[in-house]
């Protein structure tokens, strides 16, 4: 991959923006708790790609990899906790539809 860094950044950047749009859309348009978590995962994927890309472009891959590894560990722990909360919510409501969860309103 020996091309001008600017061009590379721009092409990857466009795709990162598009993937993020997917993730945001997924969170906004769904009524399903698990699907919201999946949308968040897609967003994190986009962020991971951007960090790795930044590391590649600045020649600092070691730092970028260190950051990504930490990030992945945190992400997993967060998903475990979220999964636990979703399971409990299902036990109370017998559904994971957010439209049924409107007891709290701003």
């Amino acid at each position: 991959m020996s091309v001008e860094p600017l061009q590379l950044f721009w092409y990857f950047g466009i795709f990162i923006i598009l993937i993020s749009i997917c993730g945001v859309y997924c969170i906004l348009a769904t009524f399903n708790l698990i699907r919201a978590l999946i949308g968040f995962e897609i967003l994190v994927k986009a962020a991971t790609l951007l960090i790795i890309l930044a590391g590649y472009l600045t020649g600092n891959q070691a730092l970028a990899q260190a950051l990504v590894i930490t990030l992945i560990v945190i992400e997993v722990v967060m998903m475990v906790v979220a999964g636990g909360i979703v399971l409990w919510l299902y036990r109370y409501n017998q559904t994971i539809d957010t439209r049924k969860l409107s007891n709290l309103k701003g």
Partner: peptide
């Protein structure tokens, strides 16, 4: 807790994008 989790997750992702740009 779930509401806090989703909003906090979105905040997290925004921060990560920003950190990546700073790294760049």
């Amino acid at each position: 807790a779930f509401k806090y989790l989703i909003l906090s997750a979105i905040a997290t992702v925004l921060m990560l994008f920003s950190i990546a740009l700073f790294l760049l």
